[in-house]
Amino acid sequence: MRRITSGTWLVLGLFALWEASARLGWVDSPNWPPVTEVVAALIRDSITGELPLRVGGSLWRMFSGLLAGGLAGVVVGLAFALVPVTARLFGVVVEALRPIPVPAVIPPLVLFLGLDDPMKITVVALTVFFPVLTNTMQGVRAVEVEAIAMGRTFGIGPWRRAAFIVLPACLPYVLAGLRVALGLALVVTVVAEMIAGEQGVGNYLVVMQFAGRAPEMYATVLLLAALGYALNRAFVTLEKRAIHWWFAMGR
């Protein structure tokens, strides 16, 4: 078994502080329940199957959005970097759309896409698109000129060069963009679910808030923190496997 790291001790210490602050009345509000009650609520609603179902739904929406937005980001990023005319045509539009906060575009998206999965997945995809796009473009710029020149010398056409030389070479950048996007995607999924519809973890959070059930509210917050952490760890592991050559080069 691995030794417990100092980071784990810090988390446990913070939980102890939370418990003490609620039990000893340092924070005197019903909206600040002790962490043990929060964990009890988490276990209760996990056993009934409600939370696992909702988490599953949220994750499904998140990964759909991640896939759609990630693919679009890579394709557009490659196009912008390899075919300069596309960047000149669409670059301004993309740069103008990028700084818009996602919660601000949810109302018009509701108008066009409704309140269900299409709207929520689109919101996630939009969020994921931009970091992946920027990183892909940066990645293409970092591809070694010799690699592309050698491809040309061997008579490989532009499509195959993009797919088999440029894309693998810029994969580390794409994956770094996806990792940033992964964290954002979870946040945005929950925000979209909080606004409308009766699906997912976000809706659970709103219902519990309106029912005045603080332990369930914080249980969701804890769950999301754990989920975000686990997703990131899983992604790093996959990343190490996918681009082990990059790490092997000592970069």
Binding site: V110, L111, G114, I195, A196, E198, N203, V206, Q209
Partner: peptide, 19 residues
Amino acid sequence: DTSTTAGGATGLPGLVAGQ
């Protein structure tokens, strides 16, 4: 099929939009 919104704000625009 009920759809819960946190406040009345999203309900009426949703009615106009046909949601």
